[in-house]
């Protein structure tokens, strides 16, 4: 991370800057076999904000993030990181970001301290700064107790936290995190959420992909939904909820099939929902405002139970 970049973001707080930290314009990715993984994605992330990218498996989330991190060359379109063209000058762009790739491996034979310190050095930090940065990241991610342990002896969740820690080293002004909390237990997930929140408070821009809608709802200033390679929705959770024509959900069990799966119906108003409950003489039901989850399932055309199966299938 460059000093200029660090200084530039300090003190801004969340969503404090006008110029985008990340700007993607018309991003398309066509693979050699003809698969179109991204089809003209336009998306900005501002300094100090957290943007979550949601979408079913194979929607093109990781392809999009890999083009941002310069791992994948876009077929068409532009990616700029703080005004630096990430396609033409990948090294300069990468100096401004911290990345947690989705399927990255760790060096099992290194200790947590060595892993963090050596990668901090690789990011260009001086020896003393690298040591301090490694210690800070270990503290933030509750890895201090594992400081001298070989990474290979850590649990899967602890390894994932090490990987998230590598992205945080040197406080880069843009964090790109591909499913950072996949496989983490609730406590570890919360620790990562806190770290992401603090990074945004310090003024860093964060873009992350996730399968957890709760995570997106809790962390994000804005949410992007990618479906079949297209950005089908992008806005604050409130804006996305506003897109739902029917924003009241009645969840109930069919009185004729009390052992069956719970069902959901959507209505334009609370009164309309109540009328339906009374007309159907439902005895076991809840009426609630639609959530981001409802928006997601409406946009993607998945039903909640299909989504749950999809999450279970990918180990989420």
């Amino acid at each position: 991370m460059t000093r200029t970049a660090t200084q530039a973001i300090e003190g801004r707080g969340r969503r404090g800057a006008d110029a985008p930290a990340l700007s993607a314009r018309g991003l398309c990715k066509r693979y050699a076999d003809g698969t179109e993984a991204n089809r003209g994605i336009d998306l900005d992330v501002l300094a100090g904000e957290v943007v979550s990218v949601l979408g079913p498996n194979g929607a093109g989330k990781t392809t999009f993030l890999r083009q941002v991190t310069t791992e994948l060359r876009p077929t068409e379109g532009r990616v700029e990181v703080f005004g630096v063209d990430a396609v033409a000058a990948p090294l300069r762009a990468k100096r401004l970001m911290g990345v947690t790739p989705q399927e990255a491996g760790v060096f099992e034979r290194l200790t947590v301290r060595e892993h963090l310190e050596l990668f901090a050095r690789l990011k260009g930090l001086a020896k003393a700064d690298a040591r301090a940065a490694a210690r800070e990241v270990a503290d933030e991610l509750c890895l201090t107790g594992e400081w001298g342990r070989r990474v290979g002896s850590l649990s899967g969740g602890q390894r994932r936290r090490v990987l998230v820690g590598l992205a945080l080293l040197g406080r880069p002004p843009l964090l790109v995190l591909d499913e950072p909390t996949t496989g983490l237990d609730p406590a570890s997930r919360r620790a990562v959420w806190d770290v992401i929140g603090r990074a945004a408070e310090r003024g860093a821009a964060v873009i992350l992909s996730t399968h957890y809608i709760e995570e997106a709802e809790r962390l994000s200033d804005r949410v992007a939904v990618i479906l079949a390679g297209r950005l089908v929705a992008f806005g604050t959770p409130e804006e996305l909820l506003g897109r739902l024509e029917r924003s009241y959900r009645v969840s109930y069990r069919d009185p004729l099939d009390p052992e069956g799966e719970p069902r959901s119906l959507y209505f334009k108003s609370f009164a309309e929902a109540r009328r339906h409950v009374e007309a159907e003489r439902l005895s076991e039901y809840t009426v609630a405002r639609a959530s981001l989850e409802d928006v997601y399932f409406t946009l993607t055309g998945l039903r909640a139970e299909e989504g749950a199966r999809e999450e279970a299938a990918c180990g989420v």
């Binding site: 791992e71 090294l91 300069r92 790739p101 491996g105 990668f119 690789l122």
Partner: peptide, 17 residues
């Protein structure tokens, strides 16, 4: 091993040639 266990990604996403 670095390439097929995903460790290479750690280097590839760093400002490292």
């Amino acid at each position: 091993e670095n390439r097929f266990t995903g460790r290479l990604k750690l280097f590839a996403t760093l400002p490292l040639s």
